[in-house]
């Protein structure tokens, strides 16, 4: 019973169900082959392809924990990719590792600034997060188009391509990037006091203020982190297609990321967050997409399935559904687990 109440249980159950369905319908799903010291297989593809969403969803988790939301992540991805590719394209030696590193650094810095801009609007000017990040969501792709001069910039750069296609220690480099991001975010949130203070601000902003928490800085930092992670995701995406497509890069990724966070058991109302839950949520969504593709459904139609998932998740979380379920269980156990709340009287 206690296990059933754990907040990860639904997400894990969904993931396991998907894997089982896949394994039954295509037995090769679980098989992983070793070729020239590099691993291949459907699962490996899922791990690699999930990297951009993983980065964006990690940032989104922290922002949502502060009672916020970041709609601009897709646009930041587009800008970041455009910046990186423009730097490489302008260089006479696109295969030079130094050039690629500079391009990555500049793109990351620009994303960080864009995240800081969102944070400024939300934390300092007090604008609703949805609207504040909507501004950049609107303007961001325009900026990306300006950077690329209105074209889809394409490049040939081996070091840059390595980011999405390369292998290290037999594993896709992109997957290792997302692992690194998970570890870094988890260390910063859980090995320092940041996670606890973020949750406190998200759960009860006024109590946190009275306790002396610097909530403005914490909220601002969350948007900066989200911007930076989205920027790295943009680099991964553009490396995968070796092009900066301002219109397609990160399209709808904010919605996938929000969905992953919610699937992982973090409430959109803010407060307690679960990075592990988000990781499971991302893998669930990526597996779902892979399943849809495998089933022969055109990828374009996949939003219908995502819509179904969203509806199921929100219905499960809906207060009305919960109270209906609670009524059912109470009828079964008449003693009832009603929580004693003497304060309700005052």
């Amino acid at each position: 019973m206690k296990l059933l109440r754990h907040r990860l249980v639904w997400a894990v159950a969904a993931l396991v169900t998907l894997i089982v369905v896949n394994t039954i319908s295509r037995p090769t799903f679980l098989s992983i082959t070793l070729q020239d010291g590099e691993l291949y297989g459907s699962l490996i593809d899922i791990l690699r392809n999930s990297a951009p969403l993983m980065l964006v969803a990690l940032g989104m988790t922290v922002v949502i924990a502060t009672r916020g939301i970041d709609l601009s992540v897709g646009a930041i991805m587009a800008v970041s990719g455009a910046v990186a590719l423009t730097v490489i394209e302008a260089s006479p030696t696109p295969d030079n590792l130094g050039v690629v590193l500079v391009a990555i650094a500049v793109a990351a810095l620009v994303s960080l600034v864009l995240g800081a801009w969102n944070g400024l609007l939300v934390a300092v000017l007090g604008i609703q997060p949805i609207i504040a990040t909507l501004v950049l969501m609107l303007a961001g792709r325009g900026i990306a188009l300006l950077i690329t001069g209105g074209f889809i910039t394409t490049i040939n750069s081996e070091p840059y391509q390595f980011i999405s296609q390369g292998y290290v220690l037999g594993l896709p480099f992109a997957f290792l990037v997302s692992i690194a991001a998970i570890v870094v975010v988890a260390l910063i949130e859980r090995r320092t006091a940041l996670g606890m203070l973020t949750e406190a601000v998200g759960i009860n902003p006024e109590a946190s203020r009275l306790a002396g928490v610097r909530s403005r800085g914490i909220v601002w930092g969350a948007y900066i982190a989200s911007g930076l992670l989205a920027g790295i995701a943009g680099i991964l995406y553009s490396s995968n297609i070796m092009a900066a497509d301002a219109n397609a890069a990160g399209l709808y990724i904010e919605l996938d990321a929000i969905l992953a966070v919610v699937l992982g058991g973090t409430s959109l109302a803010g407060g307690k967050f679960s990075l592990a839950g988000t990781v499971v949520g991302v893998f669930t969504i990526q597996t779902l997409k892979s399943t849809i593709t495998f089933l022969g459904v055109p990828p374009a139609v996949s939003p219908v399935f995502l819509a179904a998932v969203v509806v199921i998740v929100v219905l499960v979380q809906s207060p009305r559904t919960r109270s209906a379920l609670a009524r059912l269980t109470r009828r079964r156990t008449p003693a009832g687990g009603a929580r004693i709340d003497p304060e309700a009287a005052s």
């Binding site: 606890m196 406190a200 009860n204 407060g271």
Partner: peptide
Amino acid sequence: GVVPDLSVAENIVLGVQA
């Protein structure tokens, strides 16, 4: 006052940690 979804320990150290 309280941050209801945090634990007793977290609520107690909140002021010091802040």
